[in-house]
Design a protein around this nucleic acid. Structure first.
Lengths: 122, 122
DNA sequence: ATAACTGTACTAAGCAAGTAATACAAAAAA
DNA sequence: TTTTTTGTATTACTTGCTTAGTACAGTTAT
């Protein structure tokens, strides 16, 4: 059992942070489609959280369609690769839009923003 | 007295959201350097929050250097225009870095990111 | 002088959300 | 058949934010 010593942000509920972390594992292919994920208790142990907290996170992921449950057997990553890819792209798109909107709310014009993006080296 | 019917996000403390809102008013020049801002009670009324909540927000802004207090007279926006501009740029820079880091955490490579930025129209 | 307005401090109460502990039900494994 | 493992439900605790009320001190306006 690998224990992940993850530092959680105090500003957000842990279960939401867990959702994001696990979702990223799916996006990155660290959790493969159709594969069985660790049990609620094992997963909780791995991330050093309460099993209920982990369950809440996994319920969220199930409602979103990333995982499904076979009762008394376990939880599995969806086999819908297309869905995973689309979600990943959607998240990226939303990150971009939020970024742009935030710059605008600071008072930057679209011309300013284009300039900022052009001059930026990653 | 203009009442702002602002919808606060339940995920974050109201006083922090107020700090961001007022900070943006300063960045945008809606609150000018050296100008007097509404009293704690008036400001609270304007945003429909408890005076204590508003005071907490204004205290935060004072600690950051955006406003200063003249006791029994009122609170004023800093006259340091240079500071305001630098802070605005810092916020923008951090937004950019967070954006890039988030894309990376989704599994996008730097090459992917460059492509995304290049193909994006605002 | 008096009243009104400024920021500030303090206490208490209540509420909501997150977390934790425990117990239950069903299937699989031994 | 018994034990273990799975997900799930319920209940209680804790924490932090918001709200509310009150009070004080100093300046400004009347």
């Amino acid at each position: 059992m690998i224990i992940i010593s993850y530092v959680f942000d105090n500003d957000k509920p842990i279960y939401l942070q867990l959702e994001e972390i696990i979702k990223k594992e799916i996006f990155k292919g660290e959790l493969l489609p159709s594969s069985k994920i660790p049990s609620v208790r094992d997963f909780a142990l791995k991330y050093q959280v309460n099993p209920n907290t982990m369950q809440k996170a996994l319920q969220g992921l199930e409602e979103e369609g990333f995982i499904y449950t076979v009762r008394t057997s376990g939880k599995y990553v969806t086999d819908n690769k297309e869905f995973i890819l689309k979600e990943k792209r959607l998240v990226a798109k939303n990150l971009y839009q939020d970024f742009i909107n935030n710059l605008r709310s600071l008072g930057y014009s679209d011309t300013d923003i284009k300039k900022i993006l052009k001059e930026s080296e990653i």
